[in-house]
Computed example of a mutant assay.
Amino acid sequence: MSSADDSDVDDPADSVGYFLQDMEFHGKSDRTRREYGRVLRRFESFLSGGGPSGSVGIEPGDASHRDCMAFVHDLRRDPDLADSTVATYAAYLHRFYAYMTQVGTFDANPMALVMEELDERIDTDPTRREISVPRMRAFVAEIDHPLERALVVTLLKTGMRVGELCNLDLRDLSLSRDLDGFDVGGRAQLDGRPDSLYVASEPTVGEVYNGEERTASNKRKRGTVVPVDDELERTLLRWLAVRPDPVSPAEPLFVGTASGWGERLTPEQVQRVVRDHATAMGWYESGAGAAENVTPHYFRHFFTTHLRDRTGERGVVKYLRGDVAKDIIDTYTHNWGDNVRETYERHIYSLLDLPPR
């Protein structure tokens, strides 16, 4: 058996090694590969003991969903693992199976059913700072720079991940207003859906997408159409009015205005913007951790918590986050205008003090 961070693929039966090597080809960091390797090798060791079936020597490609459930249950019994860590480890295993199924090495992903159950039982976010909508509104009001405000408001209004934000191109934005000089809304998925953003699932770090090598990966199970309300529209229009000409032919929505003028923003740059404003608000302290610090991921937590509480609609919120399985996301895609947009516009919180048009 290979060690936790070993990616030896001389043995064709070593599916974990194959996956870890492909992660390297996709540009994943050594740290990320070690983390995945540690969890996947632990899963291999668990299976070698027989899993719930008692058959010694099960390989990952032969594991059933019951084997996977038993592994997650075994993780839960580990006193050193918090619920959020168990959820993270399960997500690693899910991504391993999803990838191996996609490339045709495995026939099916036994973690798919397990993840649906985990989504209901485990809060993947640790206990976090509680911020009310009025306090968040005051936070946004202190951000004057058009780009920085657009980044923060987009994250707060859509719940997307920071990598997904950085991967947005002009073609992913559809507005009902005509924008001279901007080729927006080129996505077929946005036809008949004005005032929307399309968050794709495909962009992957290190791979060329829409003519440009990406510096971040999207982690959605499937592409999602997210409504753009009046506040977000006005914020984006203010940004586009001063947006530098982009370097990339992909026409990134968000580009640099200082160092890296006109270049697509990276997650690290967005994180720095949020960290600076959160620090000024007393919401960020080095070393404090996720329980205290406000980061781009906190905005995803804020979006989920407040919109879910206002709507009582777990399905719509999960759709907007891009976290649901294919059958559920198909349901909301087909009922997008009647269900998703209507629910969103009726319940989305206000972040700006805007005069009427």
Rank of each mutant, 00 (worst) to 15 (best):
N293E: 05
D330Y: 03
I58N: 05
Y332G: 02
E120A: 10
T311L: 08
V316F: 01
R128V: 05
D183I: 07
S259M: 15
D330N: 04
D22T: 11
P227V: 05
A91M: 14
E164W: 04
G337N: 08
H301A: 14
V255S: 02
Y18C: 09
V103W: 11
I143T: 10
F96H: 05
H306K: 11
L81H: 03
E213C: 13
L237V: 14
V226T: 08
P110G: 09
E148V: 00
L320H: 01
S64P: 08
T215H: 12
Q271N: 13
G17I: 04
G211K: 13
E233Y: 02
P12T: 11
H73P: 10
T304N: 08
S350V: 05
P252M: 11
S176H: 10
S201E: 11
S53H: 09
R308S: 09
G315M: 09
G51M: 09
V140P: 04
P12E: 15
K219M: 12
N218S: 15
I329R: 09
R357V: 12
G287S: 02
A82V: 00
R243V: 02
L165Q: 01
S3E: 15
H73L: 15
R220K: 15
R341E: 04
A278M: 03
T266V: 13
E313V: 02
L155P: 06
A200D: 04
L197G: 00
C68G: 06
D172A: 14
S286V: 01
R357N: 10
K219W: 05
M69P: 00
M115H: 05
R187E: 15
E202N: 04
L165F: 01
V114T: 07
R272S: 15
A150P: 02
V208D: 15
R177E: 14
V205P: 04
V152N: 02
T311C: 09
F182G: 07
A82Y: 03
G322H: 03
D10P: 00
T304K: 09
P79K: 10
R214A: 08
E164P: 10
V56K: 07
E24Y: 08
H334R: 08
T343A: 07
L351N: 02
L253D: 00
G262E: 11
H65G: 03
L75P: 01
A141C: 04
V103E: 15
V56Q: 12
A138L: 07
T85R: 08
H26Q: 13
T295L: 00
S217I: 03
M160E: 00
D172N: 15
S350Y: 00
D183L: 13
A98N: 12
V39C: 12
W336S: 01
W239K: 00
E233L: 06
G104K: 14
Q21C: 06
G256A: 12
F71N: 03
G211C: 11
P244Q: 00
T305K: 14
E116M: 11
H297A: 15
W239N: 02
G159K: 03
W283A: 03
L197E: 01
